[in-house]
Design a protein around this nucleic acid. Structure first.
Length: 414
RNA sequence: GCGGGAGUAGCUCAGUUGGUUAGAGCACCUGGUUGUGGUCCAGGGGGUCGCGGGUUCAAGUCCCGUUUCUCGCCCCA
């Protein structure tokens, strides 16, 4: 075993895996553009406070998962653990308030310091979609519809479940929070250590605790739906009605809270049972307070993120790229001629394989290995007749073709 | 941060109660074919048995430590 190990939790994307990733990204880019989304990219690192101020001091991401370091100028820098905060920072930095509403699609690597396991890495890749500046529940529906559309395009929608919940608006959340603190305080000594730490800082997170004792206590906890005010209730009902009208099935999950503090109203996850312990393939929700919290004007927003690795594990093997035509020269004169021919054909749009060395047998072997659909053979015989021999690599059929007719004869191998 | 499983050729793996020079399949190279691949036949190269220590006449095999991978817990994409 070599000592040249990649950093734990990171992986090389070799051609087969890269092709899967590209399939996922291409589908998302194509579908999102039909919904009016434009692609952007933000830097993979930001000042630490872009994340620490927005994700919540008690979120796992901030407390234990960020890759943070001091750069040579003494600035605290963090590799982005998610993309929503970065996109909102970009929205404010570039004065895009005037362009609202904005629809942004992006994708790229994210970094979280966690123990790697199936479907979880320290550097992983996400698709991101954000719709900024639309307070109407229709925006939530549009994001969900688009997400489902992308999953359908990838052929995985039927193998996922859309779980959805409403956290209510800020007032509802605050009211519920107080109810929860009051309730859990009476059981404080029985709660798990994690839950006890969250009791005053972020009691909502206790709701999705998996601890057995916590679950028992939870069964008597006040219901979130009961403390959601009428406006929020109405908002959520509209979302659900629209989903039903569009034929998007969902499953209400009142325990669904999500890990980041900035969510309100709609919270959702598309989950699957196919990826071991990691069920979530796409997750997001509404974050109306986020931009204001970052120092911008009060601006609503909805968005989601999807795991590219997780999706790529669920899709069918993509078809390989277009197969090349190999040029097989025999002899020095033919080599020069073949080299020039390769150049001409590449400029004409053909995918050409041209090896620099080897006898004919080796070159044929190589043509086979790279999956060539045809081989162009040229030696003294062909040169004397000012043409080449084209061999169909599947049927083995060979025909002589003049240089003048070559491109048109090759068209079927494009 | 905590727990389970694993680490032998480029890849997937076998290797008996510890006992010759550590094997197979695939892949690779050469030849059978001096201008013909994918099939077939023959031959060949390739190993710090993760690393370090210990037990033993003898360790891939047993013991301890360590490291990496992997699956799970927590949490998330």
């Amino acid at each position: 075993m070599s000592s040249l190990q990649p950093v734990r939790g990171t992986h090389d994307l070799l051609p087969d895996e890269m092709r899967r990733h590209r399939t996922v990204v291409d589908a998302a880019r194509s579908v999102s553009s039909r919904y009016g989304f434009e692609e952007i990219a933000t830097p993979i690192f930001e000042f630490t406070n872009v994340f620490s101020r927005t994700l919540g001091d008690t979120s796992d991401v901030v407390t234990k998962e960020m890759y943070t370091f001091e750069d040579k100028g003494g600035e605290m820098i963090t590799l982005r653990p998610e993309n929503t905060a970065s996109v909102m920072r970009a929205y404010l930095s570039n004065g895009m308030q005037q362009l609202a509403p904005c629809r942004f699609f992006s994708h790229g690597p994210m970094f979280r310091y966690e123990r790697p396991q199936k479907g979880r890495q320290r550097q992983f890749h996400q698709l991101n979609a954000e719709l900024i500046g639309v307070p109407d529940p229709l925006a939530d529906v549009e994001m969900l519809t688009m997400g489902a559309h992308i999953l359908k395009e990838l052929g995985v929608l039927e193998r996922t479940t859309l779980e959805i919940n409403s956290l209510g608006d800020m007032d509802s959340r605050q009211a519920y929070r107080e109810l929860l603190i009051a309730y859990f305080s009476t059981y404080e000594s029985d709660l798990s250590a994690d839950s006890r730490a969250r009791l005053t800082k972020n009691p909502l997170r206790i709701l999705d605790s998996k601890d057995e004792k916590d679950r028992e206590i939870l069964s008597g906890a006040p219901d979130m739906a009961a403390s959601i005010n009428d406006d929020s209730r109405c908002f959520f009902d509209t979302v659900l009605e629209r989903l039903t009208k569009l034929g998007i099935s969902y499953s209400l999950n009142t325990r669904l809270v999500r890990g980041l503090d900035y969510y309100c109203h709609t919270a959702f996850e598309f989950t699957t049972t196919e990826l071991g312990a990691q069920g979530t393939v796409m997750g997001g929700g509404r974050y109306d307070g986020l931009i204001e919290q970052m120092g911008g004007p009060a601006t609503p927003g909805v968005g989601w993120a999807a795991g590219i690795e997780r999706l790529s594990m669920m899709i069918n093997e993509p078809v390989p790229d277009s197969m090349p035509v190999s040029i097989i020269p025999i002899g020095d004169v033919a080599f020069e001629k073949g080299f020039a021919l390769a150049n001409d054909l590449r400029h004409a749009g053909f995918n050409i394989d041209f090896g620099v060395s080897g006898n004919m047998k080796k070159r044929m072997k190589r043509a086979n290995r790279v999956g060539a659909r045809a081989a162009i053979m040229l030696g003294d015989d062909e040169l004397a007749r000012d043409g080449v021999t084209v061999r169909d690599m599947e049927t083995g059929e060979q025909t002589e073709v003049s240089f003048a007719m070559l491109e048109s004869q090759l068209d079927r191998y494009r």
